[in-house]
Write a protein that binds this DNA or RNA. Structure first.
Lengths: 228, 228, 228, 228
DNA sequence: AATGAATGAGGGTTCATTCAT
DNA sequence: TATGAATGAACCCTCATTCAT
């Protein structure tokens, strides 16, 4: 059982195969040189986006960073939106690499929860800049707003199933609606991560303490019995 | 004791007297006509912002909506940023009107918590469009990003004091750091509100259920004794 | 009776009140200065269009000619199409000025026809450059293509009525369908004008000879009795 | 005698051997594969031109249609102008195929005229799209404008000779200048064809009626004796 | 104060043509 | 010859801000 997202497939907890709408992507370049150029542009775009934000990033900033002409940009992407989708796509593939796959389902639900939260928070921290970007883009672009929403909902549904399971096994507060509880708790974790890793807080916070806190509140919140 | 924000002073839970940095505002107009014109512009701006979003709102949209000339805009505001600050300022003042003042501190901490959450969520719902706007502006404008951060932190600090108090009284989990617990739980509520009222969810959710859920998880999360 | 267009209302023979779709035009400027600037832009546009053609005319050419900034162009027009419509509009108004109104309906149908053709051809010659332009634009822009078509058809319908009338009076070949005959003869005149005044011919042609020829063929073509 | 163009050599009535200036064409490809590739490109170009018009046709549209690379285009053609010339050239060769050669010069001038007009109009109808294209290109490209003009003049000259001949034989109005009359009547036919087959008319027109009308007016116009 | 026209830097996008492979 | 990526001049259009009236 995994009540939170595993870091292995995404940051926002979604188990869906692709982070981005494939409709946003065009066919891959024919030649090897083309593939390289495309990659360079994506890398440059990520750099520029993280440096200046999505809105302030000009296409010429990206091509300058990639050391190529304006025209080349349009060989591979239709516009800023499309290259941003590509940046997300690549970032997601990178995330898959570290592997670790599914979390081992030890007998102890609390331990599972903790490991799962840790993995999620680590991924979030690693990709904090990209998360901030996604947040910005979502406020601006309908496509990505919808993307974020869908994935958030997927996350919540999955965790809701976990909670319902715990309730059946008699180890979670039966008076809570699983969907609403999941919405609250899942949101708690992602918001915590955002506030700490992206927005920044007054005083630095120890990473282990974060994991401990969200896990304990999660457990408390569901009235997990017998821990401590 | 109030562990969450009361609706009477803000939406993001901040207890500070003014929502916006006074430095962003200029002195009020001398004549009465001037004051009216200023108000009309602010009302128009709010309308346009809520309709088109901050970024897509052109200053001419606002003056057109206010039925005044482009030039007049600059008589009262330096730029879009400044009129947005004024919109927030006015909205905050409107919030104060309904009154209700401080929540009555009954003896029952759970009841207080519930009333407090209800008030917060109601305020959020009423101002959902503005909250969405603030979210957008914060990703774009350093000033408002900082504003939002400071107010969020203030909120968290206040709730942290409440939690510490409950711990002293022996009715909250002593193993939780008050600040971190507050950050988690406060974030949970505001995130829930955002996800339900702004972002929109798959299926409509009953308002009382929302209040019930966040309150119960909050109580559970702190290991509130003896409720239900 | 007038079987061809009178020069007083248009070049292509259309009796319609406005040459251009009013939907293409926006409201008139509020101030006098605005009105002047708009006129200057239209005059400049006509100059540039006639010099370089519609397609090769860049907006900056027009603003440069009008000695104003790029932005000013967009204060008055949405794009090249719109200012071209304005050019036509103004040109048409200029055409109306010279007056002469309806041709006097003398008793002699041949004389009427000749006067009418003369007026049409004179107008065509005076506006030859604009006619060439319209021809170009019609091959490029759906809106103006349709405009030209509609006006041509109106021209043809009007002349068809004249022919039918002559048939009833027994002075035109009854074996001709009025609409088709009109289409043929009206087209003959406009084509002749185009070929002589716009396209240019190998050897210069005397204007009176042109009038004589088209009128005589028109009369012959309808089997006008008793002339010469 | 043929007073109008025969369909066997061109659409615009020109009797010239080649529709296009040979200077526009380059030498034929050496290899057989090259020749095929060239043909494919021309066919693709015609398709694209007829679909999108000359101006909106991008070279990549053509190469995509021909399933070949951008670079290959420049192996066979210098630019859009040149491939358009090739399209015309090929189209003209196709026209020659059906044969039919010269029209039989029966004794009856009216019958000859009718057959000749029918052939012309049929050819026009068959190639309506190409005619529309040529019209567009002529407004844009000096080379093709001149081409069209020269061919039109050739057409007119030929018909003028026919008219002069009829006058000498005493069966055509001697008061008409042959050149001007030819210019008027030839223009009448081509304009009619354009208006009916390219531009489109309000109501559909029967083909035979068209032939009848232009022929009768032509005969009437020249004061052909004794017909009907 | 009010008006609304004037400004022009700045960014996005296209596509014919060239060039390395 | 064939390929398809690379180039960049050229042009359109937006809109915050200024300014003359």
């Amino acid at each position: 059982m995994a009540t939170t997202a595993s870091a292995s497939d995404d940051w926002d907890g979604a188990p869906l195969p692709s982070m981005v709408n494939p409709a946003l992507l065009r066919e891959t370049p024919a030649t090897q040189r083309g593939a390289r150029r495309r990659s360079e542009l994506i890398a440059a775009a990520r750099k520029v986006f993280e440096r200046s934000g999505y809105l302030d990033a000009r296409l010429t900033d990206i091509t300058k960073e990639a050391k190529c002409s304006t025209g080349s940009f349009y060989t591979y992407f239709k516009n800023k939106e499309e290259i941003f989708a590509a940046v997300l796509e690549v970032a997601q593939q990178e995330m898959l690499h570290p592997g670790m796959g599914r979390l081992p389902d030890s007998g102890d639900p609390y331990a599972v929860m903790e490991a799962s939260n840790r993995a999620y928070l680590e991924a979030y921290r690693r990709n904090a800049k990209l998360m901030a970007l996604l947040e910005q883009v979502a406020t601006v672009d309908q496509t990505f707003r919808e993307l974020r929403r869908r994935r958030g909902e997927a996350f919540i549904h999955r965790n809701a199933r976990g909670i319902a399971d715990l309730q059946k096994r008699g180890i979670a507060d039966p008076d809570l609606d699983p969907m609403l509880a999941s919405r609250a708790l899942s949101g708690m974790v992602s918001r915590f991560a955002f506030s700490v890793f992206v927005r920044g807080v007054d005083h630095p916070v120890d990473f282990d303490e974060i994991v401990y806190t969200v896990t304990r509140i999660w457990a408390n919140g569901l009235r997990f019995p017998g821990h401590r």
